[in-house]
Design a binder for these strands. Structure first.
Lengths: 343, 343
DNA sequence: ACCAATATTCAAAGCGCCTTGAATGCGGAA
DNA sequence: TTCCGCATTCAAGGCGCTTTGAATATTGGT
């Protein structure tokens, strides 16, 4: 059933039917009711392609998820984020167009998306400290919102981020207050903003407390279980053994826990661990007594908000860039405890 | 740059330019070269909306990921699967339209997708043993491929699945060969086909070996870490203690491992564990000596193949439904060992 | 040089919708 | 009754592409 058929069926012009369904005021309320009824009965939905050709709006948002190479890790956070964004799109009648692409292809994908008029805007995932995508997107004039921040940007742009720096400073401070001094940071790739900011927060706390920084207690890599396991194993076997770990994700922390347990140590007693918890739905770290002490912030919530921000921007292109900084909560769990010499 | 501008710039008709770019034979090769060059220079891409309006093909595939409720678990497998499918779509110029939706809304989403002509086909995720979506999709005439199978279907349909039954039978047999008799199955929700088939495989092996089946060694739920932990903890504390666990996913196994370690037992010695390994990229279970003995099958690969199957089906609507059954590999790791009475 | 056959190119219609500008119907004021 | 203004409705053009059927250019044979 298309507009023509529907309007013929009703004995009305396409104009009137279209206006009736799109809420224009110059339609008799009686007529509108009739039209709406008939549309519902005939399960009529405007052809998306025709509609966007006519209006110039694609009614779709692009999400381009970068991976380093073809068989590389897909950041598990993205599924949660997208789940949030999808909620928003459903609400406003937008579609979500997903592309998982190698970083090297990203530029051409954005260009193509724009040239094809496939999307009205995009969400930028995994921003780097100095991310070339900002300039690119400004250049091609595609509205966008960054999930995270670009540290070295001269211009303003839309972003929504968690306060990584503050979160990790706070977590480090807690460990220091518990008497720890040798605190290892098992971080994500520090070319990425989120990891860099976490590192800064960690260093902030050390500096403020006059605690020396040990290069061999800093690790930075992709967030996998294996990375957590191997790094923690090595650190525990080294001379400069840490008494606490600050870990950038739940998944990495699983590897760390494996290493600790394998070394015959007890988490929360011999060794303290604080993680950042994105609240991935299949890793529930909750209850009255969570396993991990954590800085917690819902990625799904960020997805919802980012999508809303983008839709607003698309709606009003003159809107000044918006920024949202979400705060995390430091949640006490059973993975932290006072420093013990014996460790 | 649109077709009109490009053709004016070239001094050719839109017809010729369009045909030149779409590889029609009735275009002079010299002209074609000229057109292609100009198109590349002007970064011309046909407007997707206009193109699909003219051709009647949306050039997009829908993926509808069901979740039980708004804040429910998003199956982590889906990200890997989608990463595979996306590779295929990139290759063929298709877009991937993702919707994450509560199960109760799924029907209306499929209908809407079809009525809006937003997609040319869909991938059905997480099929149930008796899944109403088959009839629905046949009804609205939307091509589809199921990732997994619907156990109770009279009609043929496209699917690609891993041989769950055989995999779990084989894994169970291995445990039996190692002397285990009290083998717990920590399974997914058995309304879902994959979990049901795994259960059948497990029972097949028990039956063949005349080993009794204990209801309290069977668990079925959503695949979260917490589920694994709590279930294993309870089973280990019960009268009818299992000496081996068969676990439906890596994530659940992490919880199981936590429970085992907390009970002071050693995996691969006191207790054996076999998992199913979907090869999630951030949980590498490889190397010469993987931590977990596992039935392994790449979900990403399945995504690639499913997408190819769907595109073929769309290309030729008269194609008889296709089926692909992927076999898993039983990979020996360090989480299994012979039965010990002491456990 | 002429014509049929073939190779190229083109003008125009149509995909299904929205939207501009014009047309119609109606009631109340004059 | 006549006219004007407002409330409704409509016809037609356009979004950018593909594709049909017609037109033009080119080629080889005679």
């Amino acid at each position: 059933m298309n507009l023509k058929e529907l309007s013929e069926h009703l004995g009305l012009s396409q104009t009137t039917v279209s206006r009736a369904l799109n809420g224009y005021p110059e339609v008799n309320e009686t007529t509108r009711k009739r039209v709406e009824l008939a549309a519902a009965e005939g399960n009529y939905r405007p052809n998306l392609r025709a509609m966007s050709l006519a209006t110039g709006r694609a009614m779709a948002i692009g999400h381009v998820i970068p991976v380093a190479s073809k068989n590389d890790v897909v950041n598990p956070v993205f599924a949660e984020f997208v789940a949030g964004a999808s909620q928003t799109y459903n609400l406003y009648g937008y579609e979500l167009m997903l592309t998982i692409a190698e970083s090297k292809d990203e530029e051409s994908i954005y260009k193509s998306l724009a040239a094809k008029r496939a999307v009205d805007g995009v969400i930028v995932h995994s921003p780097m400290r100095n991310d070339p995508r900002l300039a690119l997107l400004n250049d091609i004039g595609l509205p966008f919102v960054v999930h995270g921040r670009v540290c070295d940007s001269k211009t303003d742009y839309n972003w929504i981020d968690m306060n990584n720096r503050r979160a990790f400073k706070q977590a480090t401070q807690l460990l220091i207050d518990l008497g720890h001094e040798k605190i290892a940071l098992i971080n994500g790739q520090e070319t990425l903003s989120f990891a860099w900011l976490r590192r800064l927060g960690y260093l902030d706390a050390l500096t403020e407390n006059n605690i020396p920084e040990y290069a061999d207690l800093l690790a930075s890599s992709e967030l996998t279980e294996t990375y957590g396991y191997e790094t923690a194993t090595n650190m525990l076997a080294s001379e400069n053994t840490p008494s606490a770990f600050l870990v950038s994700s739940y998944i990495v922390a699983i590897g760390v826990r494996r290493a600790i347990s394998q070394a015959g140590l007890a988490i929360g007693k011999d060794i303290s661990v604080i993680i950042h918890d994105d609240e991935l739905s299949y890793f529930h770290n909750g209850g009255a007594f969570p396993q991990f002490t954590s800085t917690r912030s819902s990625v799904r919530e960020a997805g919802i908000l980012a999508a809303e921000m983008l839709l607003k921007q698309i709606d009003d292109p003159n809107l000044y860039p918006q920024n949202v900084l979400l705060e995390s909560h430091l949640i006490m769990g059973s993975s932290t405890g006072p420093y013990r010499k014996s460790a």
